[in-house]
Computed example of a mutant assay.
Amino acid sequence: MNKFIAAVSAAAAGAALAFAGASGVAVADDGLSGAYTLTWDLSQAAQVKNKEVRTDQWTVTPCGAGCADVAMGGGQTGQMHLVNGRWEMSRDMTLMNCNAGGPDVTVFTSLDAATLQGFQRNTNHCANVTFEGPASLARS
């Protein structure tokens, strides 16, 4: 009896997969891969002296389902994770060694997985200043 149930279950699963493929139901590709340009608009950020739009070149490599390794300019790296339909990455950096026991700067990036539009937030723990601006990621 158990063999019969297992066989029926396997057949049903196979039929469901075949149906999904035949019906054109798309399986979401949550992976990022390749060369991208991140554009970060700080032209409206009140706390920023140099009102500008910044760009950075990213090389993105998948590291599993919902995971992407990111290599950025200046030898910086990070890892994005797909969380509730958004690619998110938090990076801590020690640049000035002013925050004993913690990072000097935290950069948080959050992008909608479908549009690759979102925001990037920079928190300077040394100066106790946070600024944020719209960000977008586009294939280079």
Rank of each mutant, 00 (worst) to 15 (best):
residue 1 M to W: 08
residue 1 M to T: 12
residue 2 N to V: 14
residue 4 F to V: 15
residue 4 F to Y: 10
residue 8 V to F: 15
residue 8 V to D: 06
residue 9 S to N: 10
residue 9 S to E: 03
residue 13 A to F: 15
residue 16 A to R: 01
residue 18 A to S: 04
residue 20 A to Q: 08
residue 21 G to D: 02
residue 21 G to T: 05
residue 21 G to E: 06
residue 22 A to L: 14
residue 23 S to D: 10
residue 24 G to F: 10
residue 25 V to W: 12
residue 25 V to E: 06
residue 26 A to T: 11
residue 27 V to G: 08
residue 30 D to H: 13
residue 32 L to R: 06
residue 32 L to F: 06
residue 33 S to F: 05
residue 34 G to Q: 08
residue 34 G to F: 10
residue 34 G to Y: 08
residue 34 G to A: 10
residue 35 A to H: 07
residue 35 A to W: 01
residue 36 Y to A: 13
residue 38 L to W: 14
residue 39 T to V: 15
residue 39 T to H: 13
residue 42 L to E: 08
residue 44 Q to S: 15
residue 44 Q to H: 10
residue 46 A to P: 15
residue 47 Q to G: 02
residue 49 K to W: 01
residue 50 N to W: 04
residue 51 K to M: 03
residue 53 V to M: 02
residue 55 T to Y: 07
residue 55 T to N: 10
residue 55 T to S: 14
residue 56 D to V: 03
residue 56 D to C: 05
residue 58 W to T: 04
residue 60 V to E: 03
residue 64 G to S: 11
residue 64 G to L: 09
residue 65 A to M: 11
residue 65 A to P: 11
residue 65 A to R: 15
residue 66 G to I: 11
residue 66 G to K: 14
residue 66 G to V: 14
residue 68 A to R: 10
residue 69 D to Y: 05
residue 69 D to S: 14
residue 71 A to Y: 02
residue 71 A to R: 07
residue 73 G to E: 15
residue 73 G to F: 02
residue 73 G to K: 12
residue 76 Q to G: 08
residue 76 Q to V: 12
residue 78 G to K: 07
residue 79 Q to E: 11
residue 79 Q to I: 02
residue 80 M to Q: 09
residue 80 M to Y: 01
residue 81 H to T: 11
residue 81 H to C: 01
residue 82 L to N: 09
residue 82 L to V: 08
residue 83 V to I: 14
residue 84 N to R: 06
residue 85 G to A: 10
residue 85 G to N: 12
residue 86 R to Q: 15
residue 86 R to V: 00
residue 86 R to T: 04
residue 88 E to L: 08
residue 88 E to W: 00
residue 89 M to F: 01
residue 89 M to N: 08
residue 89 M to E: 05
residue 90 S to Y: 00
residue 90 S to N: 12
residue 90 S to D: 10
residue 91 R to S: 14
residue 92 D to N: 12
residue 93 M to F: 15
residue 94 T to Y: 09
residue 97 N to R: 11
residue 99 N to M: 08
residue 99 N to D: 04
residue 99 N to L: 07
residue 100 A to H: 01
residue 101 G to Y: 02
residue 101 G to F: 04
residue 102 G to W: 13
residue 102 G to Q: 13
residue 102 G to M: 08
residue 103 P to L: 00
residue 104 D to L: 07
residue 104 D to I: 09
residue 105 V to C: 04
residue 107 V to C: 03
residue 107 V to D: 04
residue 109 T to M: 14
residue 110 S to G: 05
residue 110 S to A: 13
residue 110 S to D: 02
residue 111 L to A: 10
residue 112 D to S: 01
residue 113 A to K: 15
residue 114 A to I: 00
residue 115 T to W: 07
residue 116 L to I: 05
residue 116 L to G: 02
residue 116 L to N: 09
residue 117 Q to V: 07
residue 118 G to F: 04
residue 118 G to E: 06
residue 118 G to D: 04
residue 119 F to Y: 08
residue 120 Q to S: 14
residue 120 Q to I: 00
residue 121 R to D: 01
residue 122 N to P: 00
residue 123 T to K: 05
residue 124 N to E: 06
residue 124 N to W: 08
residue 126 C to F: 01
residue 127 A to L: 13
residue 128 N to R: 05
residue 129 V to L: 08
residue 131 F to N: 04
residue 133 G to S: 02
residue 134 P to K: 13
residue 134 P to Y: 02
residue 136 S to N: 11
residue 136 S to F: 00
residue 137 L to N: 02
residue 137 L to P: 05
residue 138 A to F: 00
residue 140 S to D: 03
